[in-house]
Design a protein around this nucleic acid. Structure first.
Lengths: 141, 141
DNA sequence: CTTGCACATGAGAATCATTATCATGTAGCA
DNA sequence: TGCTACATGATAATGATTCTCATGTGCAAG
């Protein structure tokens, strides 16, 4: 139940929060902007203030429920935090986002940070390219 | 001479462009925001419209003279394009930016993109951490 | 089951970075 | 030297995100 997820992280269980969380869990697109969430909720008759959407997303992120990504050029997208860590590759033509995980890279990152005298706390790796013709609908999906 | 750099990429040689380019080449900080460039020029008595700064930076980027980076949370920073490709590690405490290059990671990125059916055109790898106590002035510099 | 109060919400204003507009100025070629 | 396409600067406009504030509500205590 989503209510528990909220309680577990110390957030009051409210209708807007439940709806946003629920949308994130059931949406077809795994990466959504605040605006998209706002619009999709509106279309389903669940009208929630845009400010509330931003607030809820910020709280969810602080609580570790979701992750925020800032791909180049575009807006900030949010993604439900489930499953193991991964990075992203974005098609510059159609906007499609794929995920991947690579142990070699992960390990190297830690080593590099250490060598430079940093304590690694986070990283952002995003690849940009074009997905192969057949697959690429040349239109966001 | 900076004038040649401009001519070489097909841009008219104008005073504002020369000043911006010159600042980028001589500034102590290697990564600067449009706002910073605007302010530093103003302080040196070289008053240039903010819009012009943004325009010039966009043109320099299109011409390959500089590179644009979008680190998390902060604004967009620009960096003179000289020397080989590299990635960045940013101190989340003091904002210091170090650069690094790692062949292992570069190679893996290409492989990963291929495996996923993408033609890699670009990538953004930024590590976030805290630089070691002694070195970290805990204040941007 | 009521009550109180800290916290949540929504509408719209405010902010921040960035881009567009438009009247005027100028680099650079004929 | 003069023309013309392009550049500039002041300012308005935009788009994303955050703040404000009056009002509403989850939920723990009684």
């Amino acid at each position: 139940m989503e209510s528990e997820e909220l309680r577990n992280v110390g957030l009051k269980v409210t209708s807007p929060r439940l709806k946003i969380l629920s949308l994130l869990e059931n949406a077809k697109a795994k990466h959504m902007t605040a605006e998209t969430i706002y619009r999709q909720l509106g279309e389903s008759g669940e009208v929630i203030g845009l400010a509330t959407v931003y607030r809820a997303l910020a709280q969810f992120e602080a609580a570790g429920l979701i992750t925020r990504h800032q791909f180049e050029g575009g807006q900030t997208v949010f993604e439900l935090e489930r499953g193991p860590h991964h990075d992203h590759i974005v098609c510059v033509r159609c906007g499609r986002v794929e995920e991947f995980y690579d142990k070699v890279i992960e390990d190297r990152q830690r080593e590099i940070a250490e060598n430079l005298g940093f304590t690694l706390s986070d990283h952002a790796l995003t690849l940009y390219g074009e997905c192969s013709g057949g697959t690429c609908p040349a239109k966001n999906g």
